[in-house]
């Protein structure tokens, strides 16, 4: 809103400034308001240093993920959104399968959006929290490198942990 009077003065650009983000994975393009896109520190740095052309290419992030990221940025760029609304909206964005969540973490990290990185990594932590360890392995694809004996030993360690005692 602060930029509105400035724009009127220029008269040549009456509408809000927008940026186009383009996923380099499936070439999908998204037109977003600049102040929304600038929540990404990576994009902000590009814009600030005049590296951003008309279309900002976003490598390694698919259109599907980019759409979610933009949804997050739009919600958080809205000054009238209450904290509760934002929490609800965030919960909706991260209510996804593990693969999408992992892509979202990578995207939030690449685009340097601190808040999104927090909610996505918290969501992954919450999913791990609610699963038995066998399911954690299966769902996250973590290889079990314990032999049954080793696993039993680790299990026992948590009930009776001794070190250096006879």
């Amino acid at each position: 809103m602060a930029s509105a009077p400035e724009n009127e003065k220029n008269a040549s650009a009456p509408e809000k400034k927008t940026l186009t983000l383009k996923s380099m994975i499936n070439n999908e393009e998204f037109v977003v308001d600049e102040h929304v896109a600038l929540q990404s520190v990576t994009i902000k740095n590009m814009v600030d240093s005049d590296c951003a052309g008309d279309v900002i290419p976003v490598p390694t992030i698919s259109g599907e993920i980019l759409a979610l990221v933009i949804e997050y940025c739009k919600n958080h760029a809205n000054p009238s959104a209450s904290e509760d609304d934002l929490k609800k909206a965030d919960a909706g964005i991260v209510a996804k399968d593990i693969y999408t969540l992992i892509d979202l973490v990578l995207a939030a990290n690449f685009l340097d959006i601190k808040g999104l990185l927090e909610v996505t990594s918290q969501k992954i932590a919450d999913s791990i929290k609610d699963l038995p360890h066998q399911d954690v392995r299966e769902i996250f694809g973590v290889e079990n490198d314990y032999t049954p004996e080793e696993e039993a030993a680790v299990r026992a360690e948590h009930d009776w942990a001794f070190e250096g005692f006879p």
Binding site: I102, V105, S121, A125, D126, I128, H133, V142, D145, H158
Partner: peptide, 29 residues
């Protein structure tokens, strides 16, 4: 965590509440 670099995986794992740390140790070495 397959799919994530280790620093991001650790950023996720440190958020798992302490009550579940016994379980984390059981997942893999």
């Amino acid at each position: 965590l397959p799919g994530l670099p280790d620093d991001l995986a650790i950023a996720c794992l440190i958020r798992v509440p302490r009550v579940e740390h016994r379980k984390l140790r059981l997942v893999c070495k």
